[in-house]
Write a protein that binds this DNA or RNA. Structure first.
Lengths: 188, 188
DNA sequence: AGTCTAATTAGAAATATATCTAAGTAGGTG
DNA sequence: CACCTACTTAGATATATTTCTAATTAGACT
């Protein structure tokens, strides 16, 4: 997740009433009017907050007759609340000394991969660097993966195959999913 | 974690520069001056942001000669970023139908426990309700636990013992620690 | 179409936050 | 002690955000 999505997420939860709304919705869906009543706010204010929460995909409104029921999107909450941890881990990975050097050696100034390292450890460092532009847990078509890889190197076939071999992603009827770092090949 | 600590946490991360600071510190400790330089802010502004981050215990400053190096407190970040998830789970637990009824039946309007249920399932519901005022992962002395329980019921000995028996907490030379929900006794 | 309900939009007022400059402080060093 | 560096505090200003009222819209029902 890029920095400004993360920012919007934390801003969205950085308001008492929105935090309360999330908790209310965790107990079950509610209409705008009900939320307004429980929090002692006007409908307009609730609309404002729901817009903020909707923008970061934490809630979804479903119309039923005249009234709109808001649901908490738990999966999204789960994903986004951990984003900062994933990001911190990623920063740590890319800044520990040896790795940084390898990445510098194998990528040129425009960010393209010069050659695929033959030494396993270096190769994995390079792969993990490549992976950083993809989203963990998301699914991609083979086309998307190949296009993505080709930004960095011509030989997308080899690299895509190595991604799977080393458990960076897994493939199921033509769909590729980026695994969480726990499953990745261990370096060393 | 209570609502307003959670609020302060998300507010702290709800600012671009503070988010950037967290990422910079993930790559290694930096002094105030270095942070100011990297972000193009004045020292005063950095002090302001560091105060906010310190208040929610996300960073710690260590003085070395004349300069203060700031460190990211990763454990705290880890704990706090998941708080909202834990809270949502807790809300869900206390509002699923049967549990709610049991809690209503066994607690009076002022919130005290009328009797300890003899039926195991109901008893566990009641215990989990009691536990909600304590912090998961924190350590408490026996005195603290007893005082806490006595808010709800005279027989703190029985209840404290049952807390341990059912893996809600664990005891080690007189110190009690609240376990995470995964370890709790399974209901049903 | 007319009317009702529930939600939204626009815009104003109040509040909170980020940022700066300037002055101050704490600790280290000659 | 005088001076330097690095950080902090105080106070001003600019910017963002929350909240409201009043007007508007979208859809359901007669």
């Amino acid at each position: 997740m890029q920095l400004d999505r993360m920012l919007e997420f934390h801003k969205a939860l950085g308001d008492v009433n929105r935090l309360k709304i999330v908790m209310l919705l965790a107990a079950g869906s509610l209409s705008g009017g009900e939320i307004a009543e429980k929090l002692g706010l006007t409908a307009a204010t609730v609309t404002h907050h729901m817009n903020v929460l909707r923008n970061v995909m934490l809630v979804k409104g479903v119309r039923e007759k005249n009234t709109i029921y808001f649901h908490l999107m738990e999966k999204e909450l789960h994903f986004k609340s951990q984003s900062i941890l994933r990001r911190v881990e990623q920063v740590k990975r890319t800044t520990d000394g040896e790795r940084g050097k390898v990445v510098q050696n194998f990528f040129d100034r425009s960010g393209r991969l010069k050659t695929i390292p033959s030494q396993r450890k270096k190769m994995l460092y390079v792969f993990e660097h490549l992976l950083e532009g993809l989203e963990i847990g998301r699914s991609y078509t083979e086309r998307e993966i190949d296009e993505y890889i080709r930004q960095f190197h011509e030989d997308h076939c080899t690299i895509r195959r190595e991604f799977v071999i080393n458990h960076y992603m897994y493939r199921e009827n033509g769909v590729y999913t980026l695994n969480p770092p726990e499953l990745w090949a261990k370096i060393e």
